[in-house]
Structures are given as structure tokens and as C-alpha cells.
Design a protein around this nucleic acid. Structure first.
Lengths: 129, 129, 129, 129
DNA sequence: GTGGTCTAGACCACA
DNA sequence: GTGGTCTAGACCACG
């Protein structure tokens, strides 16, 4: 699983990790029993302290998203229930609203905004293949 | 000037305010000498403490975006130079891309995504007035 | 009555005024019925806002040290009771302790400290005449 | 290093800490590289919030008196230049003069004043050990 | 009414 | 354990 940090976002790094794993698990991108990256290499590649990764994993275990098997690693929990679609929609709405607020403050019209969305979707389609 | 907080984003409220004002000033939506909302009423409407807004305004003054006159209020700085339009687009693209990535992770189709965007834009229009 | 502000002390100006008047009244330097400086000229000479002086006088009235006669000015209260000697000593002790702490941090020995005290007392005697 | 607060002085506690450390460093009482008390235990012993001490240390770092290493502690800065002895004496004289002025206001005789000084010095010796 | 400051509590990253 | 940051409440100076 690929995890990335946005260092300028101001969001706590451990929360960024939690959210990314949770969303990936909830969407089915990560299946039950699939392993998470080991703490030490992940911390190294993200250039943060191992404690910070450990805290993220602990939080995920608390939330029942993953299971830690000592000496083996961290795995997506067996009874991991994907989000209800309502929750999915809420997460997505949050991201869209943020983009809309940005557009508003940058004085981009609704029409231009929607066109930009269409453009980016196409762009994504192309890079996917 | 319209300022909105995303209470669930995990991003510090004062940083959200800083970004929104900065972008609005940079895009030309706020002109030189234009006043920002007073600290108290804004804090009340966002349901946060006065100091959180004050910190945002202090940071904006530090960055030279804003000039504050004690007893009078906060105003867009004289020498405030708008972003180049390319920078504006970059910022906006980043926000849109983040939403698109979320949609993909949650396995939402492009069509559903665009419909949700349209919905949120409408929602926004309604609450603005 | 002479009032002076220490602008670098970090102590709130209105509190400095309160303390000076209170101490002068308590020591008998100001007698019952004696007038305080008018707000406007005092504020001007101290280069602070009139509200700040007004606040000090209001606090003094609250504490029963002065009486305000509207249109006439502020006067040392009739039943103004000088501090008990224990309170006087407490005030003085505070000032002495502060000097001692300074001496300690500046690595001045007790002996040198006491000599400096004697010196300053003499200096004061001379300027008084 | 010994730090004391005067809780009744009306001077901001964090400024009292700043002054004391600065003077101790300036007089040579604290040498380069010497550690300051850790934030938490000092706050506890002074019975104030951690942040108040933290603010004092941050201010000291700003002024170049101190260098702070996260996770390690706070240390007297390398380039810390002691005050000239004339400046030390000036600071101390100011504190003594203030005490003398108080004594005069409260109509305490020079003799009683000097006795009180001796008393307080003794008191200080006792609590230091 | 305006903005500024100080203290405090909770949380974060790091060793 | 260390220091750093963000939010909040109370108080201050000023118009």
C-alpha cells in the first residue's frame, strides 16, 4: 500500500496515515488480511519518527480497522466493515467542498470550475492506463 | 468576505482562515485597503475562540498580506501582489485532484462524482445568500 | 502628586498608577481630601490614553482609597485608612526581595549588596536636600 | 539554577523568568552550554502552567540567550555575551532604588530599612538550601 | 466597539 | 521523558 504525506497541509502526520489506510480499507482497495507496510521502513521513507507511524497504527487498531500480530506486523482486520455509502459520500463531500471554497476565493466561476473538474478527470483516466 | 471552516478536516482552523484570506487576496477578490471581518463577529459566526481568528490575522500580517490598525480593524495590505494566474490554477488543481483521488479510493464513478460536484455547487449558492 | 510610569516593567500602566496612589495615601504623603491630578492632563503627561487613567481612578474608588466628585475631580477618601504596618512591611519586603533576587542572579555577594544599599541610601539623602 | 516568582508584583510571570535567566547568563552565573531547568518540573515547582515557562524559554531563544534542542532540553547559547559589569550594576541599582523609594513613601527610616534588608538576606539563605 | 497579550489545557512529534 | 503548537478564557490599551 502506498502512503504519502502532505507536509504543508498542517494536518498531523499520524492522522494523514490513519485516514489513508482507513479509506483504502473502506473502499476495498485493501482486503481483509492484507499487510500494512512495516513501521520502520515506512517511517524511513516518509522521513518521520517511528513513534509517529506506531501511533497511527495503534489508532487504526483502536478503531478496529487493522489487527496487530506481534512479531508479524499489521494486517487489515478480519471483520473490517467497509464504510456505509453514506460515510463514503461524507468523506468525498468534504474534499469537494474544500475545492469549491478554493475556487470561490480564487474567483473561479462555477462553470470554469466544472470544466476544470472534467479536465482533471480525463487527465486521471489517461495516466491510469 | 466569506470564510468557511471544515471542522472535520483535522487542519488547524487558524490555518484554514489564513489560506482562504491569502487566496482571496491573491486572486484579486479582495482589493488593497478592503477590510477583513472584525475578529469577534467572525469568531462567533465560526463558533471558535476570538484568539484563533486573531492568530490567523497576526500570521497574515506577518506574511504581509494584511495590515492591522488597532482599534480600527484589519485591511488588505497596500503592497499585496496577486498570485500569477498559473499559481491560482495550481492551487485549485491540487484541491480538485485530492477530491478525485478520494473518489477513486471510494470507488465512485466519474459520472457520480461530477453529479456530486454539481450538487455541492448548488448547495453552496444557497447558503451564500 | 507625582506619578511616574515604568514603560519597560511589563506591569499594566493602570496598575502602576493604582499602586503609587495607594501607597502615597497609605503612608500619609497624601492627606484626606487632597486632590488627585485631573485625568486629561495626567494622561497627556504620561502619554497614555485617558481611559487608562480613568480605569486606575475607578479601581481606586472601588478600593475606597479615593472619592470621585463628578465635575470636581478625584480626592483622597475621607475615611481612608492607612495600611496597617504589617501591610506596609509586606509591600516593602516585596521590593527588597526583588532586589535580592537580582543580586543573586548577577552573582553579587550579600556583603557587596548591603554596601550598595548603604551607598544608595546616602545618595538619596543627598538629593533630598 | 534558582528561579523565583513574585506572584503579587503584577509583572507577567514569563517575563520574570526571562529576566532572571538573562541576568544570570549575563553575569556569568550560567556558563555556555549549561542546561536550564526542564520546562515541566520548573512549571510544577513555580505552580504555573507548562506553557508559561515554555513561552519564557522561547523568548530567551529569540533573544539569543538560550539554545533549545527538542527532546533534549534548553541550554545557555554558545555566543552568549555577558553584560559589562557596569550594566549589571545599573540593573541592580534600579531594583534597590525602587525598594528605597517604597521605604520613603511608607515612611520607613533608613535604619529600619537596612535591618529589613539584612533580615530578608538571611531568610533567602535559609530557603536556598 | 477595535486588536493585543498572558495564562492555561490538550495534543503532537521526537529521543 | 523532552520541547512545540493550537485552542480557549480573561484581561488590557485604545478609539
Amino acid at each position: 500500500m502506498l502512503i504519502r504525506l502532505n507536509y504543508k497541509s498542517g494536518k498531523a502526520p499520524y492522522l494523514q496515515i490513519v485516514d489513508q489506510v482507513k479509506h483504502a480499507a473502506a473502499s476495498g482497495a485493501l482486503r481483509e488480511g492484507e499487510p500494512l507496510p512495516a513501521i520502520r521502513p515506512l517511517a524511513e521513507s516518509l522521513r518521520i519518527n517511528r513513534n509517529t507511524v506506531a501511533k497511527a497504527y495503534a489508532e487504526l487498531e483502536n478503531q478496529g480497522v487493522v489487527e496487530t500480530k506481534v512479531g508479524k506486523g499489521c494486517f487489515i482486520a478480519e471483520n473490517n466493515t467497509p464504510f456505509k455509502s453514506s460515510v463514503c459520500q461524507e468523506i468525498l463531500t468534504e474534499a469537494i467542498d474544500h475545492a469549491i471554497v478554493q475556487a470561490h476565493h480564487l474567483q473561479v466561476s462555477n462553470k470554469d470550475f466544472q470544466q476544470l473538474v472534467t479536465e482533471r478527470l480525463k487527465q486521471f483516466e489517461n495516466t491510469k492506463h
